[in-house]
Amino acid sequence: MPVPEPTPLERFLNGILPENPVYRQLLGLCPTLAVTAAMKPAMTMVGATAFVLICANLITSLIRHLLKPHLRILVFTLTIATFVTIADRTLAAFAYPMSKLLGPYVPLIIVNCMIISRCEVCSSKQSPKTALADAVGVSLGFLLALASVATVREILGNGSWFGIQLVPESFPTLILMILPPGAFLALGSLLGLATWLGHRRKARASEPHAGSA
C-alpha cells in the first residue's frame, strides 16, 4: 500500500516546529553556536542558509529521477557547494564587513547536515512544489532557532538586541555569553526548555484521558 504523499502545506508546517532542525533533530548546530553572538550576523546566516537550502532542494527535486543511489550524496554536496559559492561571493560583494565577520562559517554551510538531510529525506523523493514548501518551512524553523539563541546571547552578553541598546550602559553584562562557552550554555538551556515545554504539553493533552479512565 503506497504511503500518501505529504501535502506541501504539511511539509511546510512540519519544518517549523514539529521537526525543527535545531531543537528537534539537532542538525545544523555549528552555525547555531558560532554566529549567534548577536542578532545581525545570525540573521545574515539564516538568509544565506535559506537561499542555499531552497535552491539546492529545488534542483535535487528536479533531477531526482536521474540520481544514482551510490552517487547521490556527492551530487547533493556538489549542488550545495555551487550555491554556497554564489551566496559567499554575493555577500562579499555587497556586505563586505558582514562577510568578514562570518568568515569561514559561510563556506561551512556546505557541510551543514540540515541541508543534506533535507535533500536526502525530502526533495530527492518528491515533486518540486513539495520540496520548495519543505525548504521554506525548514528555513523558518532554522530562523526561529537562531533567533532564539542569538536573542538570549545578545541581551545577556551585550545588553542589546539587533544592535539597539536595551539596558543602561552601566548595567553589568555577562561577557561570557558572547564568548564560545556562552553559546554552549545558552543552547543547552534552551534545548532543556524546549524539551520541558514539549513534555508539559504532552502531559496536558493526556490529562483528560487519565481523568476519564
Binding site: P181, G182, L185, L187, S189
Partner: peptide, 18 residues
C-alpha cells in the same frame, strides 16, 4: 528529566569550553 540527552551534553561542553 528535561535536560537529559543533548541538553546536558551541551552544558557540559560549555563548561569544558570554559
Amino acid at each position: 528529566e528535561s535536560l537529559r540527552g543533548a541538553a546536558i551534553t551541551m552544558i557540559v561542553a560549555g563548561i569544558l569550553a570554559l
